[in-house]
């Protein structure tokens, strides 16, 4: 292309009377196929809510179990020791087996 003074202006105007480009004839068919693929049936929405609710309940359960295990509560052993020493309940023999001398 040879250099000319008014060339930039001609280039700037080269899009005049431009016709719109058209998509391929398959455009609508492919679009509706994609839409069919992505649109889920309505029960799917409720199913997802159900799964979400189960996950929340599971998380609450795990949290409760964790709290229960890490809690500084009096262990069963300590409670039994207290009972043996202070209330006078005899220690079951199997906890303190009599050995033959």
């Amino acid at each position: 292309m040879k250099k000319r003074e008014n060339e930039p202006d001609e280039i700037m105007n080269s899009l005049q009377n431009l016709e719109r480009a058209k998509p391929s004839p398959d455009f609508e068919r492919v679009l509706f196929q994609k839409l069919q693929f992505i649109s889920r049936p309505s029960w799917m929405k409720w199913f997802r809510y159900g799964v979400a609710a189960m996950l929340v309940l599971g998380a609450i359960n795990l949290y409760t179990l964790y709290q229960f295990n890490t809690n500084d509560q009096i262990s069963t052993e300590t409670q039994l020791d207290y009972l043996y020493e202070n209330i006078g309940i005899d220690e079951p023999y199997y906890l303190n087996p009599i050995t033959e001398e």
Binding site: M1, E10, S14, L15, N17, L18, E19, A21
Partner: peptide, 10 residues
């Protein structure tokens, strides 16, 4: 959509 004479310029 560009006319033939404007193809290169566009």
């Amino acid at each position: 959509g560009v006319t033939l004479e404007n193809k290169e310029k566009s």
